[in-house]
Design a binder for these strands. Structure first.
Lengths: 212, 212
DNA sequence: CGGGTATAAATTGTATACAATAGGAAATGC
DNA sequence: GCATTTCCTATTGTATACAATTTATACCCG
């Protein structure tokens, strides 16, 4: 994509995920143009993208607001992710080559490290986690699945500042990934789907706690 | 919705679905601005939306092309729809009130009429079909599911000009809908999901024939 | 001729000015 | 004092000019 609108997208997204702006808060194109240092034109494109990812929403009168997620919203979203990522895991189990699984293992080692750090490095955890899931989605060789998931995956992360991740949750996530890798090595699609399902359901309860 | 960008969206979309432009064909913003009668600015927004719905794609160098769907693409898309609309049907079976089911019946009568017309009125069929599925998605009360499905549902219709719908296919579709309505009346989510699954799989084979 | 390079054309990307619209505040009437 | 209308301001929407980038063409040299 274009340079300025990408820049705007990255900056606005980072801004939202940093927690510097609160859910429900209004944003204006002008304001975002100031912050990102580009004109309103590319800002508009970035905003549209972020709307697509449901990090921003528009009021009836087209004003821009930071998305505000209810517990039901989060439940719904994880239900969809469970379906779609479960499917992705199934396909990945049938397609992943051993060197790709090696890569998953490397990413998950990184993730383990982030968890064992004191205090746990949540940002590094989230980055590694994202990469881990992206590799699986990628391996499913299903471009539309990838596109659809892209708009679902990041959304709840906007809430991350609202909660303190418990070390136990992070550790369990890392262990889920370990088991997922085992399922991939075994080439067992049913196993992979099942692990992915429980992994995401647990994640839901972690996030849901933050939205009460 | 008389905003220029909405106008542009509707016109471009209709243009694509009319079959006036062929899959793989390049379009330019300037050209689309001429056709739609608005400036490039709203055209760009419309194009971005249609990209999101995967009716348009961009080359590596950001040029705009009419999406070209392979048989595998269509398969993948119907697989995703089966998952997501199956889920929607399940939820709808638990939530639909009898007056809403009445409405589904009315829409499906319209659909039957379109099929029995000689020759079958494919446009009316597709409109009624879209409405039918929208009511179900709506009844699922899952906004994100709705958003995700919106980008999947229309896409293969761009291929419709490439095939002649067989009357048998259309009739079977109408009967599938009848059975779906029965499942809703019974309030049986499993039945609803199963019918939706076979309905969409059949639809896949219908469309897949067009993409060979 | 063929290949590579310079040049022109086509296309998308960005900034900015202005238009349209919605929201809020002030003024008015009762 | 409260509701309603009017006007002003804030915000989004559109057109257009220009910049950047990519593709196509023409040209030169071997």
């Amino acid at each position: 994509m274009s340079r300025a609108s990408d820049q705007a997208y990255d900056k606005i997204r980072a801004h939202l995920l940093s927690g510097a702006v609160k859910p429900g808060e209004q944003l204006t194109e002008y304001q975002l143009a100031q912050v990102t240092g580009v004109s309103r034109t590319p800002v508009r494109e970035a905003v549209r993208r972020l709307e697509g990812e449901m990090l921003l929403v528009r009021s009836e009168s087209k004003r821009i607001f930071v998305a505000d997620w209810s517990r039901d919203d989060i439940d719904e979203m994880f239900t969809l992710r469970k379906m779609l990522e479960g499917h992705a895991a199934e396909r990945a189990a049938l397609r992943l080559k051993s060197d790709e699984i090696d890569r998953l293992e490397a990413v998950n080692r990184e993730l383990h490290d982030a968890v064992e750090h004191d205090p746990p490095d949540v940002t590094r955890f989230l980055d590694a986690n994202r990469t881990f899931h992206e590799i699986i989605t990628e391996a499913a060789h299903s471009p539309r699945l990838g596109q659809v998931l892209a708009m679902l995956v990041e959304a709840p992360v906007v809430l991350r500042t609202a909660r303190s991740y418990s070390v136990a949750d992070l550790e369990q996530s890392a262990r889920d990934h370990d088991e997922l890798i085992a399922a991939f090595r075994a080439g067992d699609p049913d196993w992979a789907r099942a692990v992915m399902g429980s992994h995401l359901r647990r994640a839901f309860h972690t996030f849901a706690g933050a939205a009460e």
